[in-house]
């Protein structure tokens, strides 16, 4: 690990001001992803701003009937919140499907959105990776690519976004609240928060340098049956090959977002008009233009079958 200086910030304004005046600074909250990457010298911040004292750890009702989740709310607390369990079950289930109990106790809402890919070529500093070392090439294309993205990929990168939480938030139309270096705030719909890799896979979100996530807001509940189904190589504590976050209404309409298939949570609203017609029709539109490798082509039929199982389960519940 490279050495770094360290400070604790007492407020969001203090944190963004510290980031603005210190080159090479990064915020640290749970640290479960950042410290791992620092040990491998994939992340090499020169200064860490500890944001754990920012008092952004509350879940509050909004005037619109939704919930405002502080960026520092731990994954465990968000999953266990009675309002989330009752009205946003897909989010609770997605969080509980991710990581381990120890990690969920430390990992935060803001940090979960910003976690980096688990592509093995990104982690292995002896391998080319356009995300870690822009311009060095992509080891995964033509390499071991079983876990990689099948949609929205580029010639530079086929990495996936590893979050389960973000997939549920995409289905729920969450918005991300931030504070910029100058202290101004903005709200970003989660659909626009993560980027596709394109020619610059190292740029993963629309956040500017030194911009801090302060909260994630959920709109008022939409009802329906909430299901998160994660398919992976072992029953617990593994990243998704394919995951489905779905909210299904009694009339068969609803929403669906996929994890494990793209550089961001994958949702195509237009495909949801096909939901009453079944999983095949939805997936055909949702994954239209998929670009697979021989190793990950199985993800397209797997997504369709997982969605079919989810829709069958929803029908049974309704």
């Amino acid at each position: 690990m490279r050495s770094f200086t360290y400070e604790r910030a007492g407020s969001p304004a203090e944190a963004v001001a510290a980031a603005a005046r210190t080159p090479g600074a990064k915020f640290i909250a749970g640290g479960t992803n950042l410290l791992d990457l620092m040990k491998n010298e994939i992340e090499t911040p020169m200064h860490l701003i500890d944001v754990n004292g920012l008092a952004l750890d509350k879940i509050e009702a909004t005037p619109e009937g939704g919930l405002r989740i502080g960026a520092l709310v731990r994954n465990t607390d968000l999953a266990a919140d009675p309002r989330v369990r009752r009205d946003y079950g897909v989010l609770s289930r997605a969080l509980l499907a991710g990581a381990s109990g120890q990690l969920r106790n430390a990992a935060t809402t803001g940090g979960n959105l910003l976690q980096r890919t688990r592509c093995p070529y990104f982690y292995d500093t002896n391998q080319p990776c356009n995300k870690r070392a822009p311009g060095s090439g992509c080891g995964a294309i033509g390499g071991f690519s079983r876990g990689h993205a099948v949609i929205g990929v580029s010639d530079a990168c086929i990495a996936t976004h590893p979050s389960d939480m973000a997939v549920a938030m995409r289905a729920l139309d969450a918005t991300v609240e931030t504070m910029r270096a100058d202290g101004s705030t903005r709200t970003i719909p989660i659909a626009q928060f993560h980027r596709l890799p394109g020619d610059t896979p190292q740029v993963e979100t629309v956040l500017a340098a030194g911009e801090l996530i302060t909260a994630v807001t959920l709109p008022k509940p939409v009802g329906g049956t909430h299901i998160y189904r994660k398919v992976r190589d072992r029953a617990s504590y593994a990243f998704a090959l394919v995951s489905v976050a779905a909210i299904v209404q009694r009339d068969g309409t609803g929403r669906v977002a996929l994890g494990g298939v793209a550089h961001k949570p994958w949702r195509v609203e237009a495909a949801e008009t096909q939901m009453p017609r079944g999983a095949k029709a939805v997936t055909a539109q949702l994954l239209m233009g998929a670009r697979t490798t021989p190793e990950n082509a199985f993800k397209v039929p797997l997504a369709e079958r997982t969605l079919a199982a989810v829709l069958a389960e929803a029908k049974g519940d309704a």
Binding site: Y6, R8, I28, G30, G31, T32, L35, D36, K39, L48, D50, N52, T76, S100, G101, Q102, L103, N105, A106
Partner: peptide
């Protein structure tokens, strides 16, 4: 030492965490 095995699990403020994935200076 990378948060994958759980051998370093300790209890901080009543909650189990991985001591290999947090800095000592963050535990004030």
């Amino acid at each position: 030492d990378h948060g994958q095995c759980g051998a370093c699990t300790v209890i901080v403020d009543g909650r189990r965490v991985l001591s290999c994935l947090t800095l000592a200076v963050m535990q004030e």
